[in-house]
Amino acid sequence: MSTKTTDSPFESIFPDRTIVHTTDSNGNIFGWLALPSAAALPETAKRLAAHGARLCAITAFNEEKFSCGGNMELVYNFDLDGAVLNVSIPVTPDDRCVPSLVNDFTNADWHEREFAELFEVKLTGRDAPKRLFLDPDIDSGVFNRLIPLSSMMNGASTKRLWETIFAETSMPDWAKEAK
């Protein structure tokens, strides 16, 4: 991406903030706004909502790729008539809590439920989010843990899987032997 500073619709919305602008090879505009803290997010979101922006996605990630409980960052992508503003907020181990945007952007619901269950981030300003994808039996914050690829793809757990199934299934002996 190359750096660009003109033609951005975000300059007039945030004259008081420093936004870094980049463009892709087709000239599409991407603004990058790093907020100092999560507390600044609701006011930023309100201004964007007032200008008719649409929330596209929210991404959570650990600053250290496979750390658990360390510093995190959340990146919110907003579309405004073809231009994208990426708003990032830090999440620290002491305060793993961010304000919800559902009051300004209804479609924040699924995004917030997803990062809450995968990264164990708490949300304020909304009811406790229901699990979105993962079974309640799975520990929350599972995305914070390093799970070796072989385990994730069941390559290392095949035997245990079948042993569990055999133990809990009333399977005839001949069927167990066949396995």
Binding site: M1, F30, N77, V84
Partner: peptide
């Protein structure tokens, strides 16, 4: 691939 971030749609 350098360090950094990007978005594509």
């Amino acid at each position: 691939i350098p360090p950094g971030q990007s978005v594509a749609r």
